[in-house]
């Protein structure tokens, strides 16, 4: 990195690296760029890439009018809010129990929780569907979110975070008369704020993008999230052309993309800190 430049007058290695890195980056965002191009041109001219073809927002207008996107977006928003709120409460309590309380059966239970990192809700779709139907939660936001609320990953993450909080902090709070829950709220939660932020970002991104389970649980436009709505919209049977599908796709990914562009650093940090989803 800091090798004297005189030894390599032109650093071919580094130049090649740069070109390679840029090419790969271009290839990687090419699908998005092509979709943006197609969405801004009349369907017939979507693929002749000449700069002289006219720009149009007609595709966006058609796509917007063809499905209840606002309802879908609201459902997605409700879904990620419901899921995240539930996860934060339940995983905090459970993480606290695993980190700071000693009781018989704790280790065995923790192994059972860890096992859920591998036994994903996606795999149990058949019986989870039966369960949601028994609870009369089919076609509801709660039905979509509940299987993910007791997140094994959240529990694991918060347990680790709470374990790294110095015990002296807790003792000081106890001396001042804090109750158990008071200690949790005043000491542990504030001390783990970065972990909460990271987990929240990852959870929102995951559930914003989740598809299979919402597809199974929902059957009306009133509860469908964006991903399911988009999949119905793009189905070949619907006879919609590629320019309009591109427009709809970009509309759906826009909120998350814009959030990502603004918070890119925090986003990547969050994924770094959190590891698995």
């Amino acid at each position: 990195m800091t090798a004297p430049a005189s030894r390599h007058p032109i650093r071919w290695g580094e130049a090649l690296d740069a070109v390679g890195a840029w090419l790969l980056a271009l290839v990687w965002i090419a699908p998005l760029l092509f979709a943006a191009w197609a969405s801004l041109h009349p369907p017939g001219q979507a693929l002749d890439f000449s700069l002289s073809s006219p720009l149009t927002f007609e595709n966006y207008r058609t796509a917007w009018a063809a499905a209840p996107w606002l309802t879908y977006a609201l459902n997605t928003l409700l879904l990620v809010t419901f899921t995240l709120a539930g996860q934060l409460v339940l995983c905090t309590l459970a993480g606290y129990a695993f980190a700071r309380f000693r009781f018989p059966g704790r280790e065995a239970l923790f192994v059972l929780v860890l096992l859920q990192l591998f036994i994903l809700p996606e795999v149990l779709i058949v019986e989870n569907y039966a369960m949601v139907s028994r609870l009369a939660l089919l076609d509801s936001i709660a039905g979509m979110g509940l299987p993910y609320v007791a997140s094994a990953f959240g529990i694991f993450l918060l347990r680790q975070a709470f374990k790294s909080v110095p015990l002296e902090l807790e003792e000081a709070a106890r001396v001042e008369g804090c109750s158990w829950l008071g200690v949790l709220w005043r000491v542990y939660v504030p001390a783990s704020r970065p972990v909460y932020l990271a987990y929240a970002l990852v959870s929102v991104a995951t559930h914003w993008n989740n598809f299979l389970w919402p597809l199974i649980v929902t059957n009306s436009a009133d509860t469908r999230p964006l991903t399911v709505g988009l999949s119905l919209f793009g189905a070949p049977e619907s006879g919609v052309n590629i320019s309009i599908i591109s427009a709809a796709t970009l509309m759906v990914v826009a909120p998350l993309m814009i959030a990502f562009l603004i918070f890119q650093r925090q986003f990547i940090q969050a994924f770094l800190r959190v590891g698995i989803r």
């Binding site: 699908p31 998005l32 092509f34 979709a35 914003w208 993008n209 989740n210 598809f211 964006l226 991903t227 988009l230 999949s231 793009g234 599908i245 591109s246 709809a248 796709t249 759906v252 990914v253």
Partner: peptide, 8 residues
């Protein structure tokens, strides 16, 4: 979302 990726 994977669905959007598939559309692209």
């Amino acid at each position: 979302p994977m669905i959007a990726a598939a559309n692209l």
